[in-house]
Amino acid sequence: MIDVTSLAKSYGDLRAVDDVSFCVNRGEAFGLLGPNGAGKSTTIHLLAGVIAPDRGKVRLDGADPQEAIVRTRLGVSPQELAIYEELTGEENLRIFAALYGLRGDALVERVHWALDFAGLTDRRKDRAAKYSGGMKRRLNLACAVVHDPELLICDEPTVGVDPQSRNHIFESIEALRASGTTLIYTTHYMSEAQRLCDRVAIMDHGKLLAADTVDALIEAHGGSSLVLAEFDEPPPADAQLPGTLDGTQLRVDSDKPFELAAELGRGPHRVRSLRVERPDLEKVFLQLTGRSLRDS
């Protein structure tokens, strides 16, 4: 559905997006994972046709999203709260519905749907300025989907959101996915990418480092699993054990963690607890960039 080819955008000496290519299939959920400043938002702006690339191209079913008519198929929920706080929730939705060409009964119907989607039906007559942070985030997302887009682009939709609203946003997005909406989702939270996305692209310093399913990325870049065992008593110093022993605790990196765990259980030393930590996207990011996602 979306084809991105050799996309590049610079601001002065800063290469915000550097030769990025990927494609997103219809109905797929595609994650852009990377730290702040990785180039995710610039990529989103390029996808949405807000800015023109220095090089490369973006095509939505073959059409350029810089053309206004093509953008009617997109819905974008920006990272910043892009709502009119002086207006009510309903008025905000009506404006964006109208800008996307909805009129009359269709507009009214979609606005009611979006209010329900955002859980704001009871507060629809209140000015957005009076909403909580979570409610504003939900309205921000609702404004992006009020016109029923084929492709929804969410740029860090859960930043600064309380757990309740965050869960509401997740459930809402999952419902959209279930209804067939294609999703591009940027985040620097690995758990969000793992939960929502079929495929994930990892970005850093404007470059797309890898893009695949979560399992494939871990398989390719996650490295070994970690096996953590705790014995009832400290094994003797000359015990034949793999990994690093610290008192009663043993840490072992292994490509076959479950086989190793079973072997430890059968060994001469009584095991009190056993834990296997599989590599995750954090580890993938560490492997690819040499630094932690949280530290970036």
Partner: peptide
């Protein structure tokens, strides 16, 4: 500064 301008430009608004 509030981001609504970018949002409007993401809409089919010239």
């Amino acid at each position: 500064s509030s981001g609504t301008l970018v949002r409007l430009r993401m809409a089919p608004v010239s």
